[in-house]
């Protein structure tokens, strides 16, 4: 079930370094929200703070609030493991488990969630997820082969299959297409358009056309200088951002004029 995420006054640190400052934003369910901005402005950092993956790094911490459908994700009694089970993530570099077969990769998350699964049930989840990720036809005859034997684009779709197999509420994608060819990229964009019927999707991308093509809302991150924290400069409907943004910085970035 898709859920709404509200972020208020979020500051994100690496040790003493304030990487992202003062983010306030509401991410709507059943839609795609794109995050754009120059390199190093904190898009990945912000994305990882939404499913509490940020704090996995030593010294990394967060101040502020992230609320998903009324549940405070950073409350003292919220288990980060539960948060990550309901907010899936796809990374920039495809990372299927090399020691597992394609089949086992897809249901790796389900095996965590409900320890015992009947074989028929598992088969069903695998097929449904691989179909959902547009990968079924390519791998159905070699489900028992290692996932690392696939091409980069196939591996990324395998990771998407793995993420959607657990039916998360939200799907976070950090530059999922940056290592892919245009055809795989289009396949994944089509996939996102289908997935947004069921999930809330947040995607980080450097590809402006991609943001314009797939997303409903777009957020622009920027930073004033080296060592300064990144900020969410503007958050608006994608159409508005790309035609008539409120901020000068957004317009400069989108049209390729910097500084």
């Amino acid at each position: 079930m898709a859920k709404r995420i509200e972020v208020s006054d979020l500051n994100i640190y690496y040790g003493n370094f304030l990487a992202v400052e003062g983010v306030n934003v509401a991410i709507e369910p059943r839609s795609i929200t794109a995050l754009i901005g120059p390199s190093g402005c904190g898009k990945s950092t912000f994305l990882r703070s939404l499913n509490r993956m940020h704090e996995v790094l030593p010294g990394a911490r967060v101040e502020g609030k992230v609320v998903m459908d009324g549940q405070d994700l950073y409350a003292a009694d919220t288990d980060p493991v539960d948060v990550r089970r309901s907010i899936g993530m796809v990374f920039q570099r495809p990372n299927p488990f090399p020691t597992m077969s394609i089949y086992d990769n897809v249901i790796a998350g389900n095996r965590l969630n409900s320890k015992r699964m009947k074989k028929a049930e598992a088969d069903e989840v695998v097929e449904k997820s691989l179909r959902g990720a547009n990968l079924w036809a390519e791998v159905k005859d070699r489900l028992d082969r290692p996932g690392s034997g696939l091409s980069g684009g196939q591996q990324q779709r395998l990771c998407i299959a793995r993420a959607i197999a657990v039916e998360p509420d939200v799907l976070l994608m950090d530059e999922p297409c940056s290592a892919l060819d245009p055809i795989s990229t289009l396949a994944i964009e089509d996939l996102m358009a289908e997935l947004k019927e069921r999930f809330t999707i947040v995607i980080v991308t450097h590809n402006m056309q991609q943001a314009a093509r797939v997303s409903e809302q777009t957020g622009f991150f920027n930073l004033n200088g080296v060592g300064q924290p990144g900020r969410l400069i503007e958050f608006n409907p994608t159409e508005k951002i790309f035609s008539n943004p409120d901020e000068k910085a957004t317009e400069d970035y989108i049209s390729g004029r910097f500084g």
């Binding site: 499913n51 993956m53 996995v56 493991v81 539960d82 990550r84 089970r85 309901s86 899936g88 993530m89 990374f91 570099r93 990372n95 299927p96 488990f97 090399p98 597992m100 790796a108 998350g109 965590l112 969630n113 990771c159 793995r162 993420a163 657990v166």
Partner: peptide, 21 residues
């Protein structure tokens, strides 16, 4: 780290992450 994070992002506990990755 790539695979350890993959496991954690799926909602693995630390021990499950160790078993998977």
């Amino acid at each position: 780290a790539l695979h350890r994070e993959a496991a954690l992002a799926l909602g693995a506990t630390r021990w499950e992450m160790i078993k998977m990755a």
